[in-house]
Amino acid sequence: MIRALLLALLLTLPLNALAWGPLGHRLVALLAWDELTPQVRADIQALLAGEADPTLAGVANWADELRANDPELGKASAKWHYVNIAQDGCVYDAARHCRNGDCVVEAIRAQTAILADRSRPREQRLQALKFVVHFVGDVHQPLHAGYGHDKGGNDLQINLDGRGSNLHALWDSGMLNRERLDEAAWLDRLRALPLAVTLSRPALPPDAAAWAEASCRIVREPGFYPPQAVIGDEYVQTWRPQAEAQLRRGGSHLAAVLNAALAR
């Protein structure tokens, strides 16, 4: 009875604001750290000094924890985690898809600009860093650039291995957790994948719209939405490589953003 009540509570939460789960967001941050310049690493360490875990991975899930730790900021930033563009052919239009800048594309751009502005107070730039680390991860989760009518797959119930879930949760963490790898093993696996960008071409503003559109195109691929609620290992084996590639791209793109924003 208690378990059923907890599940019911979880299903009422605005899960469009969650992506990859804690492991996935930490992996994006750890992959990004590999590609940062020494100077940018030093600047980030200075900004993070005093945090409970003063690392990129340590703050990677901060934005998802705001609903519990800072409800007012969590509510204000809730729409910054996603953008719904699949219904429009995965072509981003700010006026249509991001009114008042309330979507992940414009949030990445706005928070990166704050981070890059060294005239701003340290506290503002620290908060912006936390948002950027998280949102770049978010935009690479395909369902965070998917359809609005099913809340990014949250309303599509599925059953895998006899357990009920939804498509969004499966992509957030279900497929990763099924491998039963620890963080170090996942890092080794993802580091073996090709880099998404090179260190020599960081640029501002970040090309967040292109990342969202690329994520969205995955959502529209045949078979991404399973034809029936009960799915098996075949779905996981088909789509987990895409999830892994997106994590790898997320890490590489995050590094490019941070290298550009903090370059001297």
Rank of each mutant, 00 (worst) to 15 (best):
Y147Q: 10
I114E: 12
H97E: 11
L129E: 00
Q87H: 08
G174P: 10
N154M: 10
E179R: 15
L195E: 09
S119H: 13
L181A: 07
G148M: 05
L187N: 06
E183T: 15
R120V: 07
H81S: 02
A107H: 02
D93I: 02
N177Q: 14
L190W: 04
R109Y: 05
A78G: 03
P194F: 04
S165W: 02
E106T: 13
T198V: 10
C98A: 10
A78S: 10
Y92F: 15
E183V: 15
N154I: 05
Y82D: 11
N177C: 09
Q127V: 10
L126M: 01
E106V: 03
P142F: 03
D188C: 00
H134Y: 08
S200G: 08
N100T: 06
K130R: 14
L167S: 02
L190T: 03
A185C: 04
R96G: 01
N166V: 01
E123V: 13
A116C: 05
L167K: 03
V104D: 07
N159Q: 14
C90P: 06
S165T: 13
L156N: 06
E183L: 12
F131I: 00
K79D: 11
P194E: 10
D188R: 15
A78E: 14
W80T: 07
I108M: 08
N177I: 12
L181Q: 12
G162L: 00
N177A: 15
L129M: 04
M175N: 12
H134C: 08
Q111D: 13
Q141C: 14
I108H: 04
D161Q: 10
V83S: 11
M175K: 03
R120L: 15
G148D: 11
S173K: 14
E179K: 14
Y82R: 14
K130P: 01
L160T: 02
D155T: 04
D117N: 13
G146T: 05
V91W: 01
D93E: 13
W80R: 12
V133R: 01
N154E: 12
A113N: 01
H144I: 00
N166S: 03
V133E: 01
L126P: 07
T112V: 09
A196Q: 12
I108Q: 06
A78P: 00
H144T: 09
E183N: 05
A113D: 09
N166G: 01
M175W: 11
D172K: 00
L129R: 06
Q87V: 01
R180N: 14
Y92G: 04
E183F: 12
G153M: 07
L199E: 08
R118S: 13
G153A: 09
V133G: 04
Q141R: 02
D155M: 04
G174F: 05
C103E: 00
V197I: 11
L143N: 12
A185S: 12
L160A: 08
H81P: 02
D88E: 12
H140K: 01
H144R: 15
F135I: 04
K130E: 00
F131L: 06
Q127E: 10
L170A: 05
C90N: 05
R122S: 04
Q87F: 01
